[in-house]
Design a protein around this nucleic acid. Structure first.
Lengths: 197, 197, 197, 197
DNA sequence: GATGAATGAGATTTCATTCAT
DNA sequence: CATGAATGAAATCTCATTCAT
């Protein structure tokens, strides 16, 4: 009857799966709960996905695609390595403080019987880290940045952003998003950037 | 029968619970599996703990106590704030690359139906972060460190250490533990330390 | 659109039902699978048949009719009881080594929640056995055959033909069809036929 | 409370499984129904068997063992091939008209999704047929029997016995067990036995 | 203390059948 | 006529917890 109810059931199931999984993880997300959240029967889930496992692989795949395409669009608008790195930080905080559900799914858990962490690490987190690393390497080559361990640096940047966002997500409001962003940027650029530039 | 086998069944159950939970999380750790790992019956678990939930609260509590007492012992041996911060980093990598099971339990998962993340955050992660923060604040007061946001800084340090350890734990050997430690220390001290000191 | 594709959807569903049911029985034959095999939607099945149960009753009824009409045509061409009995054996092996799926439907699946065995027994198997029995009785009356228990004899003939065909159907090629037929005929006629005839 | 209720749960589940499967086959035999028949909870089935499939494999294995050991005991008491063959027929009718459930499981269906017919054929029916065949071959070698196709003969004997028993099992009382046995024996021995012997 | 058989609630998955289009 | 999305009941299987021994 209502227009909103009529929109693509497959999409609604995926949205519901994210919402429910964000609470306690993939395994704890029951099909019953997902169906309730999506406002449909449990059976219909199996019309669109062959199993709960397939459903979550689809959730991850489709959200990862969206994340990376937005990330690249945003970051490539920067010209220097410094600008790009700053855009990465801005985008990360914008994305994960806005769409909090997806953050949970993509970065929040180290493993689950349904979607093992190694899979998430390989398909999402490491590609993201390496994307950041490439920006740092560019900066080093162009002499914009110091010769530092770009791999550990990019991993560290990701780690610090994540941890601060988790705190926010669980209601620990020690700082505003801007305060966090500024300190993170200071930390990174203080080490990386050549005095003159 | 044998004395060595008899020593503290309670302890053996806790150890087994850690081992099993390290694999896929608290919920996926079944009592059957824990009993098998501990070499006892399922029933006896309920003699020592009122429920699976209680068992894991005990696991967390007792490991947290051990972690914090070791941490303090190690860190307080440092005299200046700089020394103490360095000892924190050394201890963190030593502890979590060695006792990998506990790392998983304490820091690895953002939530679980059995042991909700907010509980872990409140009882373990935030106290740890605030312990680090106090060291930084000391350094600022003693003019050893710059006037920076100590809260974000300590959170960031925790986040970057964690992320690099997760990578190691899941077999991504981009760097040695020493390379990681050195870069993390450089990153932190470059921002914090006054030129003169 | 194409005429050839359109010809008798009902017939196509019945054919598909036989093929699918021959695999694992009536209950295991899902409407989804039948629809796939027939190249139509699941819904249309319910336009031609009120239920899956009705569909299989129709499958059995219509195939039984065809079988019996061919059987009678073939057998009645024989003049003596001996000739007729031989024609029954020839026809049975000819028909069921060709139409192996129908054999499975009519004789192979002895009972199922969808089409109970007593129904199959009453509507197909016993009428067939009694048809054979009547031929034997004729032979006895005409003094062509010995005075033997025609009921057990006809049942036995049916049983031995069935068992040998099942073996063939499941790939046990101990003998050729001709070897089987010859031995079965020898067995039956050795007992039945009067020395003189 | 009652003594009969206390006997081995595993055995009770197996007995119940046979009873229930005898009705509509393995697939139709639900764990709920088996539990009801055994007077226990559904869960306990999985304490003794890893799956419904395993349960039925155990049912088949254990009954087959019992059947073959009884068969051999009985048959080997016969001295000549003729005596042995007669004992096979007697035993078959005794066994399958008495323990009707097992007959259903072992010989009644050409296939089921849970226990595929090829498995039953290979592990039970063909070994049985070949056991009969060896007796016939012995008789041929000892010149007791005619030179006939022992394979088709043994298969046919099995087929005719089976078919007559199925009729009895489903209440078609055209003949008594003794009438059937006598006619089957006449049929077989008339063809096989040398005039003189 | 210790065992492990037994329970029962709940999870995933299947599928005949219906119904809006 | 024809489609296939949607439903809901039921089936298999899991597992924390209890309890007689």
């Amino acid at each position: 009857m209502q227009e909103t109810i009529m929109i693509d059931m497959r999409e609604r199931i995926i949205e519901a799966a994210i919402t429910v999984a964000a609470r306690w993880g993939f395994t704890q997300a029951t099909t019953k709960e997902i169906a309730r959240e999506a406002g449909c029967s449990e059976g219909i889930i199996y019309h669109y996905f062959t199993s709960k496992h397939e459903l979550f692989l689809a959730v991850i795949r489709e959200n990862a695609e969206e994340f990376f395409s937005q990330l690249k669009l945003e970051v490539n608008a920067g010209e220097t390595a410094g600008e790009r790195l700053e855009r990465i930080i801005d985008f990360h905080f914008h994305y994960f403080t806005g769409k909090i559900h997806i953050f949970q799914i993509l970065f929040g858990k180290t493993g689950d019987a349904i979607v093992p962490f190694p899979y998430v690490l390989k398909t999402i987190i490491l590609p993201y880290q390496r994307f950041i690393e490439r920006v740092i390497v560019q900066g080093i080559h162009s002499d914009e940045f110091h010769q530092l361990n770009s791999n550990v640096l990019s991993s560290s940047l990701l780690g610090m952003m994540q941890f601060n966002i988790i705190k926010l997500h669980f209601g620990v409001k020690d700082n505003t998003v801007d305060e966090i962003k500024n300190t993170v940027k200071y930390l990174i650029f203080k080490s990386l950037v050549n005095k003159k530039s």
